[in-house]
Simulated scan of single mutants.
Amino acid sequence: MDYRTKEEQVADYLREGIIAGRFPRGTRLKQQEIATLLQTSITPVREALKLLVAEGYVTGDSYRGATVAPFDISASSETLNLRILLETQLVRGSVERATGKDIEELRVLAAEFEHAFDAGDNETARAANYRFHHRMYEIARMPQTLHFVQILWARYPFDLINRLKGRVSRAAEEHEELLRAFIASDVAAVMLATRQHIEAGWMELRASVQAADPGEPPAKFSAKHLMESSSP
């Protein structure tokens, strides 16, 4: 049973869609379209958008219209470090609390990610990736820390990283290593695997950008540079 409010369900649907690239940066989010898609009323959609504005996933307001927030390259390095700090603590808490049922859920989500990748459906794979990590961290029962992580995710270029050639395949392999350590209850190994997984995507994106324009200092790259360098 889903104990989340309708507002929380809509907000999580939109977070997943933004991170997966289903709602690209700059896309205007129309309340009525979302409400119709999710078979709900306007009210929970409006409240969900207010929450996402506060978290940084979207800009604007629920009355004049909300737009998926642009990517800010200048904040990415700091965001990377904060993600590593908080997500390794979450995964540690999850290992200590996980039940057999929790582990089975993670196996299913990891399998969904791999099946989507094998089918060539990268958007579905990215959405499954979001659900895998969110569920893994949720097990820790550290809602405030998870909330801060979700705010960091709003500022991270997942959509660009996952467009890099071969990245989804490599992420699937990293998930396998992470899940093996998790199932073995090896706290040190699962924290290390989490850190390496987070760092891998960022380093691949940075390398891709630098290869596209080696004369440009990394801190000065714009979202346009990133999108051009990661295009299929």
Rank of each mutant, 00 (worst) to 15 (best):
M1T: 03
D2I: 05
K6L: 14
Q9H: 05
D12M: 11
D12S: 13
Y13S: 13
E16N: 04
G21A: 09
P24L: 12
R25H: 07
R25W: 02
G26W: 07
R28H: 14
R28K: 14
L29N: 03
K30D: 15
Q31Y: 06
I34G: 03
L37S: 12
S41A: 14
P44H: 14
V45S: 07
R46S: 13
L49M: 10
L49C: 05
K50N: 11
K50W: 04
L52S: 04
V53I: 13
E55I: 03
E55A: 14
G56T: 06
V58M: 13
G60S: 12
S62Y: 10
Y63Q: 12
R64T: 10
G65K: 06
V68T: 01
A69T: 02
P70F: 10
F71E: 02
I73M: 14
S77V: 11
L82V: 01
L85W: 06
L86W: 10
E87F: 07
R92S: 14
E96T: 08
R97L: 08
T99G: 08
K101G: 07
K101D: 13
I103P: 00
E105M: 09
R107N: 10
A110E: 07
A110H: 04
E114Y: 02
H115M: 14
A116G: 03
F117K: 04
F117Q: 05
D118N: 10
G120M: 11
E123A: 13
E123R: 08
T124F: 10
A127T: 00
A128R: 00
M136A: 15
M136I: 05
I139H: 06
M142Q: 15
T145D: 15
L146E: 11
H147L: 14
F148H: 07
V149Q: 09
W153K: 08
P157E: 15
F158I: 03
D159R: 12
L160I: 12
K165N: 11
R167G: 03
V168Y: 04
S169T: 06
R170Q: 13
H175M: 12
L178D: 02
L179R: 02
I183F: 11
A184P: 00
S185N: 09
D186V: 07
A189F: 03
V190F: 08
M191L: 08
H197L: 08
I198L: 12
G201W: 03
W202T: 00
M203D: 06
M203F: 03
S208M: 08
Q210L: 14
A211K: 00
G215I: 00
E216R: 05
P217S: 15
A219W: 01
H225L: 04
M227W: 01
M227A: 13
